[in-house]
């Protein structure tokens, strides 16, 4: 349902994506792993056009866009069908938890306030934040902020969820509560892309693992293939360093 072809991007003189190819089928849970600074976040941001790739093509069901001829309607159509969860949460600071989840429904999807409220309350229940719905972001822990971010993303009923290292700016003791929610989301059948450094978690929940290295997809396979029989020395080395770290 989602395909990226030969995506290239550079920030100034540094080439970050060197021709990435990736294809995701409906219902896939794809974890993207790889060394820091290799372009994983950038790749996710290409999908909803938060960054501007220099070239390449994105295909999203019947939507097809060449990045060199970016077109507003296609970008908007893709944005409406994906939802992103950010490493830094990016919860709207001027709104309560409930408003954060409701606002996109009212403003972007033009739902009535009552309907938006109903959906938002259901999603907050799902991530275990019902009691915090009237709190402002400045009053919440990192784990609560990230669960707000996840509820906001789920509420728009996306076809694809994009998780960008959702737990890597959390204190260790808060990681568990967020991973639990993500596991619940991915096991519900929603197509997901997850950038993560949580190797064990990725292995458990993913149908596929993509190893990114130096701006390209360097390996792509089932969790068993990637973790038990790494196809390249760089992948083996990366896995070893991650496991040593954990």
């Amino acid at each position: 349902m989602l395909e990226l072809k030969d995506v290239k991007l550079s920030y100034g003189n540094t080439q970050v994506l060197n021709g990435v190819n990736l294809s995701v089928k409906r219902g896939d849970v794809v974890s993207i792993i790889g060394p820091s600074g290799t372009g994983k976040t950038t790749l996710l941001k290409c999908i909803n056009y938060l960054v501007k790739p220099a070239s390449g093509t994105i295909v999203f069901d019947q939507i097809r866009m060449d990045y060199q001829r970016a077109d507003k309607a296609a970008i908007q159509a893709i944005r409406l069908r994906t939802a992103m969860v950010f490493q830094q949460f990016n919860v709207f600071k001027n709104m309560t938890v409930l408003q954060n989840v409701m606002d996109p429904l009212v403003v972007v999807q033009r739902k009535s306030t009552d309907e938006a409220r109903e959906i938002a309350l259901r999603e907050l229940e799902r991530v275990g934040l019902s009691d915090k719905r009237d709190s402002y972001p400045s009053q919440l822990s990192g784990g609560q902020l990230q669960r707000t971010g996840i509820a906001r993303a789920l509420a728009v009923r996306p076809d694809v969820m994009l998780f960008d290292e959702p737990t890597s700016s959390l204190d260790p003791e808060l990681v568990g509560e967020v991973l639990k929610v993500i596991k619940d989301v991915t096991s519900s059948g929603i197509t997901s892309l997850l950038v993560t450094h949580e190797m064990q978690f990725a292995r458990n929940i993913s149908s596929r693992i993509v190893f990114m290295d130096r701006g390209v997809v360097a390996a792509d396979g089932s969790p068993a293939e990637i973790f038990d029989a790494p196809s390249s020395p760089r992948l083996a080395q990366f896995l070893q360093s991650e496991l040593a770290f954990q």
């Binding site: 941001k45 909803n48 056009y49 938060l50 908007q76 944005r79 409406l80 994906t82 939802a83 992103m84 950010f86 830094q88 949460f89 990016n90 919860v91 709207f92 600071k93 996109p104 403003v107 972007v108 971010g149 906001r152 728009v156 994009l162």
Partner: peptide, 18 residues
Amino acid sequence: VDRGQHDAADSLGYTFRQ
């Protein structure tokens, strides 16, 4: 204003005005 606030709004399909 944090760049991430722009990213979040853009990714959710807010128009520039919104």
